[in-house]
Computed example of a mutant assay.
Amino acid sequence: MAMHTDDDPTSSFDDVQRAVYEFVDRHGTATRAELLRSVRVDAGPAHSKPARSGNYTQQTALEPSTLESCLETLLAEGYLTESEGTLRVSVPGSPTELETESGAVTIRTAREPDREGILEAMRTVAQDGSYVVAADLATRLERAPALVRVNGTEDGSQSRMCFAAVLDSNTESETTADAGSGADSDSDSDTDSTPETDPTSADKPDDTRIVGWLHLDVPALDSRSHTAELTVGVVPAHRRAGIGRTLLEHGLEWAREAGYRKVVQGVPSSSETAISFLEANGWEREGVRADHYRLDDEFVDEVLFATWPTDS
């Protein structure tokens, strides 16, 4: 299934444009060489057919001139973007920059090179065990072929959107760690240690200096295609700086523009910081699933939250 928009962005494509666009979307990024090597398009009816089969169409690789003509159109019309030879599906929205005590932080759409840093940030947030949804999401994204998937396909693959909070590589991180979980908190903390797995350490490549994320999953079921499931988190050393709130604004603005009616999130009842954060940002409690988690040999309820971005 595709992202829930009124118009299918591929409806006006010819066969070559659709094949190229879907390949880039499915893999997250692609180069011209990868497209020439991997994309196949119909070449007309085959001259022969295997036994016990119906009519079938022969497929062939793209000619370089055909690919260039296709990319010229997709780039000019804004369906794809290109940076240093790497093609990506265009995603609406402009980056936002925040000045924090740690330095400049940019909130932007996540890119494939961000994957390792985002996974580490999720696992860092999940370390104390209270925000287990972050650990589960990290496991799923580690296996996903693309970090951002704008248009899922009918084979059951899910669409997903991901935003990253990236610390400027030229700034030093000298902040006080917050021992809570989830996103920003207004409460004070007396913990002054940054986890050893903090992905903002100086030996990380610039693109993996991730201090927070927001992820939106789109269910593969048509009956729930109006709903997106959100998770958001900020690593402890960079909380209380507005990063979580700005990530949330980006995610909900994207959901609103994409036409989603409802955004949901479930958090353990033990995650008081995450619950306070969502309630402070206008989310409503919809219910509780009793004993949904087992944490440290104790059963913990899940609190279900929702917001309606099209109403705001």
Rank of each mutant, 00 (worst) to 15 (best):
K204W: 14
K204S: 14
P205W: 13
D206W: 08
D206Q: 14
D206K: 12
T208N: 06
R209D: 15
R209V: 12
I210R: 01
V211F: 08
V211N: 04
V211Y: 03
G212F: 14
G212M: 10
G212K: 04
G212N: 04
W213I: 04
W213H: 10
L214P: 01
L216D: 06
D217N: 13
D217Y: 13
D217A: 15
V218G: 01
P219F: 02
A220V: 02
A220T: 02
A220K: 00
A220D: 02
A220E: 03
L221Y: 09
D222K: 04
D222S: 09
D222G: 09
D222E: 10
D222W: 06
S223W: 04
R224V: 09
T227E: 09
T227Q: 08
A228I: 03
A228W: 05
L230M: 10
L230E: 03
V234R: 04
V234I: 11
P236A: 12
P236F: 10
A237Q: 06
A237W: 05
A237K: 00
R239M: 11
R239E: 06
R239Q: 09
R239F: 10
R240C: 11
R240N: 14
R240F: 11
A241Q: 05
A241V: 05
A241T: 03
I243E: 03
I243R: 01
G244T: 05
G244L: 10
R245K: 10
R245W: 08
R245E: 15
R245C: 13
L248Y: 00
G251Y: 08
G251M: 12
G251S: 02
G251C: 12
G251Q: 09
L252S: 05
L252I: 08
W254A: 10
W254N: 06
A255W: 00
R256M: 04
R256H: 09
E257V: 06
E257K: 07
A258F: 11
G259K: 00
G259D: 06
Y260W: 13
Y260V: 01
R261N: 06
K262S: 05
V263G: 01
V263K: 03
V263C: 07
Q265K: 09
Q265W: 10
G266T: 04
G266D: 15
G266N: 07
V267S: 15
V267Q: 03
P268L: 15
S269N: 03
S270Y: 05
S271L: 07
T273M: 12
I275P: 00
I275G: 04
I275S: 14
F277R: 00
L278E: 00
E279H: 05
A280Q: 08
A280K: 05
A280P: 01
A280E: 08
G282M: 08
W283P: 00
W283V: 00
E284H: 11
E284F: 12
R285A: 05
E286V: 11
G287M: 05
G287A: 02
V288A: 07
V288Q: 06
V288K: 02
R289E: 14
R289T: 09
A290P: 00
A290C: 07
A290L: 12
A290N: 10
D291E: 14
D291A: 13
Y293R: 13
Y293A: 07
R294M: 13
R294D: 07
L295H: 09
D296Q: 14
D297M: 12
D297R: 14
D297T: 12
E298R: 15
V300K: 09
